[in-house]
């Protein structure tokens, strides 16, 4: 296994051309090991979202290098032909709002990803149930998203992010809509899942409550990242 879940070197992203060009990312360098959860924090307009979209293979960076596990996915250009499959199989997403599919029940919301990857329905559902059990929401497996509490929805969203066993999960403000107790619970779950499934997790956050829980933090300002040690406090 690679030493890194994800490694980013000299990533840059420029919007526009000529005089109107804006450098959203100037020099981003990050390394997250499998099983590690790191924070990515920065003020509005610092380039967090651009970085997240670049990591998520949603927009194309202008230069730099990104490696997922042992696979180089970007090196001054995409090295992967099917970005859709890359997102489906190698990158997990957890959003600020859970964005569960409202017409699928909890199990199928989680099982959808493996199904999209061609896994048989029964097998995909079994994998989903295993994760729901790990996240302690197995009792709501047949419920519809609208019947879940905010915390339950977020746990289902985490299960969805993990279900294809991606080497990296990008979590965009996953605790923003939650109170401090539920927010800490979500962070604890993310840490547990990272360890259990050897997944590198990048948590983009403004949430002051959870920042002290990270052992390592990347600050991003004006498109440049700076690494610093976090407090790594125990979860409340």
């Amino acid at each position: 296994m690679s030493d890194y879940g994800i490694r980013i070197e000299g990533l840059r992203k420029r919007y526009g051309k000529g005089d109107t060009a804006v450098d959203a990312l100037k020099d981003v360098n990050m390394q997250v090991a499998p099983g590690e959860v790191v924070g990515l924090i920065g003020p509005s307009g610092s380039g967090k979202s651009t970085l997240l979209k670049s990591l998520g293979a949603v927009i194309e960076p202008s230069a730099g290098r990104m490696v997922l596990g042992e696979q180089v996915i970007y090196d001054d250009g995409w090295k992967v032909r099917d970005l859709r499959a890359l997102r489906r199989d190698k990158i997990g997403f957890v959003f600020q709002a859970p964005y569960l599919i409202p017409f699928l029940d909890v199990t199928d919301n989680v099982a959808l990803l493996p199904m999209l990857a061609g896994v048989a329905n029964a097998q995909a559902r079994a994998r989903a149930l295993e994760l729901l059990t790990a996240l302690d929401v197995q009792h709501r497996a047949r419920a519809m998203p609208s019947q879940l509490s905010g915390g339950e929805q977020q746990r289902v969203a985490i299960a969805r992010g993990l279900v294809n066993r991606p080497p990296v999960i990008l979590a965009d403000e996953p605790t923003a809509p939650l109170d401090s107790v539920r927010a800490m619970a979500v962070i604890r779950i993310l840490n547990d899942m990272a360890r259990t499934y050897e997944t590198a997790i990048i948590v983009v956050t403004h949430d002051e409550k959870i920042i002290p829980t990270f052992k390592r933090i990347y600050h991003i300002r004006d498109g440049v990242t700076h690494e610093e040690a976090g407090e790594g406090r125990a979860f409340a």
Binding site: G56, V58, R84, A85, L86, R87, R88, D89, F93, F95, Y99, I101, L112, L113, L116, A117, R160
Partner: peptide, 8 residues
Amino acid sequence: VLKLIGTR
């Protein structure tokens, strides 16, 4: 979301 998570 479906497109982001890789739906064709």
